[in-house]
């Protein structure tokens, strides 16, 4: 590693027990299963995958909204996955989250000033300073400071997402986890919010963990991109390398599945996967993708492929790729 990492995630597992009648655990959902990656300060890691792949659970675990089953999450050298109480409250300012649906993540009965300032209140920042920092955060995301007196329903969808971003920024975070942060927005507004996030990164040196199902958006914002499938990180590379030369068949299929408005869309050869995602309750043996992989061989069912550095900086978990 040439750059020092702000966030280091090592062998992280988040499992959810499924309880049956009588409270007996009869199955375990391996939502996140042995994921490791780094995010350097000021950089963006994009995380893509289909529903149920564990990308949101991963984000929530780093944010400490879900408790990690095992593994570690280190932020600027400090282990944060096992914190609780006041220690957790102190570090929480450093990692902030932006959610998908700005309407359901903003309390409709609170004024914007209270929504944005709530984290500061928890940290016992004095009222006058709080008001000033809220006003600054609003201006930074392109909202006038006098809008602080309004309620969420008085804003458009794009403005509400700006409020969500202001709420994250007011804490002066080092890392912002954006979970489908622009997915609910219309495309013209989505572009505004993406541009804003980029400006903020340049001004404030924020690192982003950008979680999305939209591969085109992820390519646009990310320095590096990780692909998840059924709880596993299956490929990790610089954005350009991943999109130009995906190594893992799943990534290849995912990329070729995107409907494209490009003029030459008709010339592309599309890989259409058969079947659906298997249930995370009973993932396939060996490589979890093998049941839908058109290249699968015997070894794929027997041994689980490990994520290895196939080319410099380009990691893939697949038995079938060669350096």
């Amino acid at each position: 590693m040439t750059e020092s990492s702000l966030l280091e995630v090592r062998d992280l597992h988040t499992h959810f027990p499924v309880k049956g009648p009588g409270g007996r655990v009869h199955a375990v959902v391996q939502a996140v299963d042995g994921v490791s990656f780094d995010i350097p300060a000021g950089r963006t890691l994009g995380l893509v995958g289909e529903s149920g792949c564990g990308k949101s659970t991963l984000g929530r675990t780093i944010m400490n909204l879900e408790r990690a089953t095992s593994g570690s999450v280190t932020l600027a050298g400090q282990e944060i996955s096992q914190l609780s109480g006041s220690a957790l409250r102190r570090t929480r300012g450093k990692v902030q989250m932006i959610f998908q649906d700005p309407l359901s993540s903003l309390d409709p009965r609170m004024r914007v000033e209270r929504i944005v300032g709530e984290g500061l209140a928890v940290q016992r920042v004095p009222r006058a300073e709080r008001a000033e920092r809220v006003a600054e955060a609003l201006e930074r995301v392109g909202l006038r400071r006098d809008l602080a007196r309004r309620y969420p329903h008085q804003f458009s969808g794009g403005q509400r997402q700006r409020i969500g971003i202001a709420r994250a920024l007011v804490m002066n975070p080092d890392l912002v986890i954006a979970d489908e942060a622009v997915s609910a927005l219309d495309v013209s507004v989505q572009a505004q919010v993406l541009n804003l996030m980029r400006e903020l990164q340049q001004e404030l040196g924020l690192a982003y963990l950008f979680i999305s199902h939209d591969l085109a958006v992820v390519e646009h914002v990310s320095d590096r991109v990780g692909v998840m499938y059924l709880g596993k990180l299956v490929e990790l590379a610089d954005a350009e390398a991943l999109y130009a030369e995906p190594l893992m068949p799943y990534t290849e299929a995912l990329l070729s599945a995107i409907p494209s408005a490009g003029v030459a869309a008709g010339d592309r050869e599309r890989i259409v996967l058969s079947g659906d995602l298997p249930t995370p309750l009973a993932p396939p043996s060996g490589c979890r993708f093998r049941t839908r992989c058109w290249k699968a061989q015997d070894v794929c069912a027997m041994e689980e492929p490990v994520l290895r550095e196939v080319r410099p900086g380009h990691w893939a978990a697949c038995h079938l790729v060669d350096a």
Binding site: S188, L194, A216, G262
Partner: peptide, 8 residues
């Protein structure tokens, strides 16, 4: 407004 893959 729509990002296109391959055109960063």
């Amino acid at each position: 407004s729509v990002p296109t893959i391959g055109e960063r």
